[in-house]
């Protein structure tokens, strides 16, 4: 971003990479896939890079409002300084916080999750889904809580999957009834409380019941949780856990 601004250019959209997308090895693959799509379509975008800080989602949800406020106000100062208007992010947690919680702190932007963004690109014909690598493949979709229940986005990720001409199979507990992967509310960063089972194991069992070839996700934390779950079931050779951006990038051989 700072480079673009130094050159006197303004990006149309800021790609909010998020901490997982920047540092987590698995989520980096999604970041790269999504960036390739943006590059292929010659979209004028920028990332904040080293100036991006965590949105504060895990701090706020754990109960640490001080840390949340410090991170959020820092991000808002950065973005307001650059005059950011539109943001797209591959993380539903970042999406939720940026979209719903930053306005009260003075940071109002048009915020899109990449599911919605990709759906828009497909719908207006910019993104042509070609190749057919997933044609007829059994794909099931795991709803992310922060996309679904938190923000009522259920159709956009499904529309992206359907554009692949794939066989989208719904599990019983989907959409509003979807079970959390177990990572939300800062659970990602600590061990489960004592119980009978891990939540990601329970969720993975529900997902593999329909014998999918691919479990599609739209959240880096769900991705980690379900990938672990599939490994736990020893099914990693039969079932791939892929983000919707990866599905598109792989399909189009970007």
């Amino acid at each position: 971003m700072s480079d673009l601004v130094a050159e006197g250019k303004t990006p149309d959209v800021v790609f909010w990479v998020g901490c997982a997308g920047s540092f987590d090895q698995r989520a980096q693959r999604v970041t790269i896939a999504f960036t390739k799509i943006l590059n292929q379509l010659n979209i004028n975008f920028a990332v904040l890079g080293t100036e991006e800080a965590c949105t504060g989602d895990p701090a706020r949800r754990a109960g640490n409002e001080f840390v949340f406020q410090m991170l959020a106000q820092q991000n808002i100062a950065t973005m307001n300084n650059y005059g950011v208007k539109k943001i797209v992010t591959t993380c539903p947690h970042c999406f939720n916080t940026l979209k719903n919680e930053y306005p009260a702190l003075g940071g109002s932007y048009e915020v899109l999750h990449h599911a919605t963004y990709l759906q828009q690109l497909i719908n207006d014909g910019q993104l042509k889904v070609e190749g057919g690598a997933f044609k007829g493949k059994r794909i099931t979709y795991h709803d992310s809580c922060y996309l679904g229940r938190a923000n009522d986005i259920y159709e956009a990720p499904r529309a992206v999957i359907e554009s692949l001409d794939a066989d989208l199979i719904e599990i019983n507990k989907c959409r509003t009834n979807g079970l959390c992967c177990g990572a939300g509310g800062a659970q990602m960063f600590k061990e489960d409380e004592p119980g009978d089972k891990r939540i990601n194991v329970e969720r993975t069992e529900q997902l593999i019941e329909v014998y999918p070839e691919v479990i599609a996700v739209a959240c880096p934390f769900c991705n980690t949780m379900i990938t672990d779950g599939v490994k736990g079931e020893n099914k990693q050779d039969d079932i791939k856990v892929l983000d919707i951006a990866e599905l598109i990038a792989q399909n189009n051989q970007y």
């Binding site: 990479v17 901490c19 997308g21 920047s22 540092f23 987590d24 980096q28 970041t31 790269i32 990332v47 890079g49 080293t50 991006e52 800080a53 965590c54 504060g56 895990p58 701090a59 754990a62 640490n64 840390v67 410090m70 991170l71 820092q74 800062a186 990602m188 960063f189």
Partner: peptide, 23 residues
């Protein structure tokens, strides 16, 4: 730990902010 990381390096994990573009 994550609170400390968030305060010190703006990410829940112990990575340097300088590495945000490594990908």
């Amino acid at each position: 730990n994550i609170f400390a990381n968030l305060e010190n390096n703006q990410a829940p994990w112990q990575f340097s902010p300088e590495d945000r573009l490594k990908w």
